[in-house]
């Protein structure tokens, strides 16, 4: 009889694990089918592999797909701020805040670099830091 164990299919909900706080995101890649993910996950939704995931760098720069300047938001975020979907190489789309949006228009296809910045203030007063995107002007 098979031993009863709980198989955790872990999906990291914390995207802020940016190694080196620099130019790439700490994602993963399926060793079976090659599908890349960010944030990291254990189970490959494409091919169904459960034990084939390995760490992978999701590199920038990417291209801006769409964005919005947000004026009404939960209190943790200081309005106005910009968010956007950035298409990173390898078919990985990531949503993040955009810093430097005040300095000029944002357009689809614009090159976006990965950065690191405070994005919110938690209810306890601490600052939430995360990867962000920045237009390459």
């Amino acid at each position: 009889m098979k031993e009863a164990v709980i198989t955790a299919i872990e999906t990291s909900a914390k995207p802020a694990d940016v190694a080196g706080r620099a130019t790439w995101l700490a994602g993963c890649e399926c060793g079976e089918c090659g599908r890349k993910y960010f944030p990291k996950r254990g189970f490959c939704t494409e091919c169904g592999s459960q034990h084939a995931m390995r760490d992978a760098r999701i590199e920038g720069p990417g291209k801006l797909y769409s964005h919005s300047i947000i004026h009404i938001a939960p209190k943790t975020f200081k309005v106005p701020y910009a968010v956007g979907y950035v298409d990173l190489p390898g078919d990985v789309r990531v949503l993040g805040q955009i810093v430097g949006w005040e300095d000029g228009p944002l357009t689809q296809g614009m090159e976006m670099q990965i950065g690191y910045a405070p994005i919110a203030e938690e209810p306890d007063g601490s600052v939430r830091e995360s990867f962000v995107f920045q237009p390459k002007r």
Partner: peptide, 20 residues
């Protein structure tokens, strides 16, 4: 949710659909 943690709101998602 990783996107909501970044500050995404439902109106912002519709706004991005509008721009797209």
């Amino acid at each position: 949710d990783p996107e909501i943690d970044q500050g995404l709101t439902m109106p912002a998602l519709y706004a991005m659909r509008t721009r797209a």
